[in-house]
Computed example of a mutant assay.
Amino acid sequence: MRAKDIMTTSVVSVPLEGKLEEAVRLMLDNHVSALPVIDENDELKGLVSEGDLMRRVRGSGGLRRSWWLDILNGAGDSAKDFIKLKSHRVKDVMTREVVSVEEDAPVADIARLLEKHRIKRVPVLRSGRVIGIVSRANLLHALSALPEGAMQEPTEDDRALRLRINEALKEVPGAAVSLINYTVENGRAAVWGVAESDFEENAIRVAIENVPGVNAVDVHMGRLPIWVYGI
């Protein structure tokens, strides 16, 4: 099983020249905790996460340093800190050294990367462009769907079916596709994620059941907390 077999394909990204306010709004609207940062050619340039934003909050609440004095003394890191705390540009705050994988990366290798770098997710690339995200949740969902932990390579038919399911989910009104993950084995789809209501969950199930080639659907979806919707 490879990255392309388990990744979330509906990736929400932010432009390199975007503003932090835009990134925050995208995170809130799509209920995600990190966004790939892409340039005008859709190539990955960085990642902006809740962690990057929280560092700004923590930094702004402490004692103010004489950053200009540090600069005169040659402390370049202080100037870097100042930019991260004060800038409203995504490119000034984002993490630039992003761990990523290619679409054919084995799932076992991805798991080792997440553990080694102590990260929650990796962008999946094709020719430098982001085509998906693999998170710890994606890995757990994939493992739980396998019989007796067997890590089998999906057939080309199952891979093609997964792509059709992805297109079908985009047609479900109001569904947060970025929060839905699914695997396919021998025509059987297993679906995880969160939905706003029972009606939305059923709509997701119906959409997948109507995809030609799907012979069964197992749905394991939770509900987003009420506060997420601003109620």
Rank of each mutant, 00 (worst) to 15 (best):
M27N: 04
L16R: 07
N30Q: 06
V37L: 08
K19A: 10
N30E: 07
G18L: 04
S33D: 11
V32S: 08
T9W: 06
S33Q: 09
M27E: 06
L28F: 03
T9G: 09
M27I: 09
T9S: 15
T9Q: 13
D29K: 14
V37A: 05
E17M: 02
E22F: 09
V32K: 07
L35A: 12
L28G: 01
E17Q: 10
P15F: 04
L20R: 01
S33L: 08
R25H: 14
V37K: 06
S13H: 06
V37T: 05
V37F: 07
L20T: 04
S33H: 13
E22K: 13
A23M: 00
E21L: 06
V12E: 12
K19D: 12
V24A: 15
A34I: 02
V12N: 08
M27P: 08
L26R: 11
P15A: 03
M27H: 08
S10W: 10
T9R: 15
V24C: 07
L16W: 14
G18W: 07
V12M: 08
S13I: 01
R25S: 14
L26V: 02
P36I: 05
L16M: 09
L35H: 09
L20G: 03
S10P: 00
E22A: 13
S33P: 02
V32F: 06
M27F: 10
R25N: 13
L26T: 01
S10N: 15
H31C: 00
P15S: 09
A34W: 04
V14K: 12
G18Q: 06
L20D: 00
V32L: 04
V24K: 12
L28M: 05
A23R: 00
V11H: 10
E17C: 00
K19W: 09
M27R: 07
V12A: 08
E17S: 13
E21D: 08
N30A: 03
P36D: 04
L26Q: 02
L26N: 01
P36G: 05
L16S: 03
E21N: 06
A34Q: 15
R25M: 14
M27G: 05
